[in-house]
Nucleic acid binder design. Structure first.
Lengths: 332, 332
DNA sequence: CACATTTGTGGGAGCGTTCCCACATGCGGG
DNA sequence: CCCGCATGTGGGAACGCTCCCACAAATGTG
């Protein structure tokens, strides 16, 4: 344990060259073929590996990207993390994870985000992410919002075209003959979710003969269950339900069944995201698929461009999604 | 963008002290109250934040812990990541995430684990983690295995007492009168899962009148579905099924229903983990709860002890779990 | 054959910290 | 009054790398 790790100087000594030559081998410069071979061989013997910390200090690049994300209970997020991890790896970056729970967590996270010399930050938190984004912008740290939007439209970001998606679902349900519609909304701080609820409501209200009621599901299990239960019971109960996330829709399905209503027969239920478990036999949830691969790739591209120093057009890129019909809305 | 971040020297100049004094404020040394105030004020004005990279270079501590974990589709893992993140945060560490998919991914990950001067590594990958563990050991990097065991018992680790858990499930099913039992096993590289299958089998075979058949579920959706379908059909189909992970059990539930068998009435199905969604109404899966909070806390403690330089007793700590009875095994 | 040009090389400063050491103070006791 | 001894302080080396610059050797040109 006491034998410290070998340094570039050690390798240089063994190979009979200068440490500059060693550096050139690993940082990509010109070295004669002969010297390169000797250096690589020496490095192999000593088990040398360049110290990334020291390297970062001079190059001012850490190759570390921070990812801030809300609690991973919503299965859609782990999938996003996985894809993001791959995309970042392919682009030569490592991922430092920051899991937040609510707003209180955000400030210490922010502190660390800035204290560590991260090359960039991806904000996939559902709440209050814009505030963090503004601070990054101010500190000159490249930043991208993913699956969320900055109300002030200053932080660059990428998300699904929430409006088009919610509208398509609304039209589908209206076309299916539904006139009493319900929305299980998320927290107000999440603009992406708010956009979905608003767009859905707008279409229904424009129809004239249809009505829409909204209950807040708070992005939580109990919240969604309670909201759906409320909307699905009483004298003017709804016949179709739009939950702004699949995660909440799963609890709406449970609430419906608890009331003796079979989704797809007695009530139509839609989610949003296309969470991987939506297609499971137990749920078969109709939803709107976010183009996750494309979103992730775009976000990483946008971030990489900023890191390269390219000024970015501000604002949010909105990618097209796709409605996915499954059993839970089959009779609509 | 061009105005570089302020350094400790900048702060020292503004406060009229030396950079040593500034360092003392942030690294925790003795500074007179008056000087401290002036420094803090100057830092506030300049928006100074110590550069962690430079700090790491001298202290040889990065406060970065690497977490290697297999694909996050199994919901149990995101939960683990979340808890681990919190525990590491509380202990003053940040988490660098490495998501692996199969064995091929492991070598490049290992390279990066060692190249980055991580203070320690947590291996929660289900497969081949021991190999990576050995290499860390060799390189002198503190390492802990979580929810997995090293067959050679050299890498310290913590997991649930898989044997006791699987045995308890087996006895419960035998006591319930089941005589034709089935196991949906995982991949062979995962020793933790193998332990469960083996312990279950041992108890059943010791019974004398009961038989047990095993099919490999490969930890995958399709694999588990196929394995369960096989076990639940044919002339000598099983009446009780033990899946070595909840994730696979969800597909066993689906397979059973697809065959017209209602879990908890026509067939008993057990998982292992107590994945958060096991308790959902759509599943109500009987299972064995891993003491995740305790496991995570123990793993972080063990890692921190190694980082402090304490030699650790080798081998795996096995924590007690708890059987959780739910509808899927109610008639047993 | 003198000179420019290419090619590879080593020396050394610098990145922003920490930490050791030397050195000023202020103060009480011999 | 001078010595010891706390108590703060600043200077400067060190961490392991990159990268600029100067320079040597090999090659090409008039």
């Amino acid at each position: 344990m006491n034998n410290r790790r070998p340094t570039g100087t050690d390798v240089a000594r063994l190979a009979g060259v200068s440490k500059s030559a060693v550096s050139r081998v690993y940082a990509g410069g010109f070295v004669s073929e002969e010297a390169r071979e000797r250096i690589v061989e020496a490095a192999r013997i000593l088990k040398y590996r360049p110290n990334n910390t020291a390297r970062s200090l001079t190059t001012n690049r850490s190759h570390l990207i921070g990812l801030a994300i809300t609690g991973l209970d919503n299965q859609f997020y782990p999938l996003m993390v996985d894809l993001l991890h791959q995309a970042l790896r392919d682009a030569g970056y490592r991922m430092v994870l920051f899991v937040t729970h609510g707003e209180a967590d955000l400030d210490p996270v922010l502190d660390e985000l800035l204290g560590y010399r991260l090359d960039g930050v991806i904000l996939a938190s559902s709440s209050h992410a814009a505030r963090v984004g503004h601070e990054c912008l101010e500190a000159g740290v490249p930043v991208v919002m993913l699956n969320n939007v900055d109300p002030e439209d200053r932080v660059p970001g990428v998300c699904t075209d929430n409006v088009a998606g919610a509208e398509e679902i609304a039209r589908f349900l209206l076309d299916g003959g539904h006139r009493q519609l319900g929305v299980v909304s998320g927290l107000e701080e999440s603009l992406a979710a708010a956009e979905r609820a608003a767009a859905f409501t707008r279409i229904v209200e424009a129809h004239g003969e249809a009505t829409v009621r909204t209950e807040c599901g708070h992005f939580s299990e109990d919240g969604a269950y309670a909201a759906a239960s409320l909307l699905l019971s009483g004298p003017n109960r709804v016949t179709a339900l739009f939950c702004v996330t699949d995660f909440m829709a799963f609890f709406a399905l449970a609430a419906a069944r608890n009331l003796g209503l079979e989704p797809g027969r007695d009530v139509a239920i839609f989610g949003f995201d296309d969470d991987p478990i939506s297609s499971w036999r137990a749920f078969q949830l109709a939803t709107f698929r976010q183009p996750l691969e494309e979103m992730v790739a775009t976000a990483v591209d946008m971030l990489a461009a900023q890191i390269r120093g390219q000024a970015l057009p501000m604002g949010t890129r909105r990618l097209a999604g796709k409605i996915i019909l499954r059993l839970s809305a089959s009779f609509a």
